[in-house]
């Protein structure tokens, strides 16, 4: 075991989840080290998003444990997990469309700040938050859109805003649920660049993605889920070569063209 592995950021132990007698997760076990980037792939209905929701606390697992930085959080309410540093980027865009781009960022920045420093509109902290928000928005070329409603942004810009917002919030672990869904091919590169920035900041990242070519560039590990089980947990190269993967995506007759 290398040194990194000794400090797990996230540990899942035999995680199970069932709803209406349908077993979605069938004992998922793996851990993610600090600073590691792990891709999660699997066919539709394999339980990827459910897994994220169990980690975030939106769903309570029927059995098993979730540990964040070696602290058990299985039954902790979602907002408390967030306070510990669990960040989430939603598949259907988690930005607040009715608020301005700036307000979205400020809402994230003040999320973990004590109320007394931010309650009054004239508080010094609020000015600092706005400055910091504009600075971070500048990094994703959104500073000039700061006063527009977030709902008026393009899909790619919304995604950049949401990832940046989670960063501004101060998350340590990023759960990115299909960050390229609804993003134009050109903007996908910007999203990838932002994910690399998070890697440089030593953030721990879990990415759900359909496009293996998108994540193999920055993932050290890829986990393949199928029917709520971990089917494969290996390096991107090994996963791509595995006949199992071809099988679950395409059935037995695997096409030679590779995966999309």
């Amino acid at each position: 075991m290398d040194e990194k592995r000794e400090q797990p950021a996230l540990t899942l132990q035999e995680l199970r989840f069932a709803i209406h007698h349908a077993q979605i997760l069938n004992g998922v076990t793996f851990d993610v080290s600090r600073g590691e980037t792990v891709g999660v792939i699997g066919p539709n209905g394999s339980g990827k998003t459910t897994l994220f929701n169990c980690i975030n606390g939106f769903y309570l697992p029927t059995a098993g444990k979730v540990l964040f930085q070696e602290r058990e959080i299985t039954r902790m309410p979602p907002f408390q997990r967030a306070e510990l540093g669990l960040g989430r980027v939603f598949q259907n865009f988690g930005i607040f469309r009715e608020m301005t781009v700036l307000e979205n960022m400020v809402t994230a920045l003040e999320g973990r700040q004590p109320l007394r420093t931010t309650f009054f509109p004239w508080a010094k902290q609020n000015r600092k938050n706005r400055e910091r928000a504009l600075e971070l928005l500048g990094e994703v070329q959104l500073a000039e859109k700061a006063h527009l409603k977030a709902g008026s942004l393009s899909g790619g810009q919304m995604r950049l805003l949401e990832i940046m917002r989670t960063f501004a919030f101060g998350a340590e672990l990023f759960l990115l649920d299909e960050p390229t869904a609804g993003v134009s091919p050109k903007m996908k590169e910007d999203v990838a660049e932002l994910v690399r920035k998070l890697q440089n900041e030593k953030k721990t990242i879990l990415i759900i993605e359909h496009d293996i070519r998108f994540i193999e560039k920055f993932c050290e590990r890829i986990i393949v889920l199928d029917s709520g089980r971990v089917l494969l947990d290996d390096t991107p190269e090994k996963v791509k070569e595995s006949p199992l993967l071809q099988e679950i995506y395409f059935g037995k007759r695997s096409p030679s063209s590779g995966l999309v």
Binding site: P78, F90, G94, F96, E103, A108, P121, R165
Partner: peptide, 26 residues
């Protein structure tokens, strides 16, 4: 209406889970 409380209130109205994941006790 200009406070962080108002932003939290607007946030939970639009997308409760997103508000929760920004550490808001909705």
């Amino acid at each position: 209406f200009q406070s962080r409380f108002a932003r939290g209130l607007k946030a939970q109205a639009e997308y409760e889970e997103a508000a929760l994941s920004l550490a808001r006790n909705t």
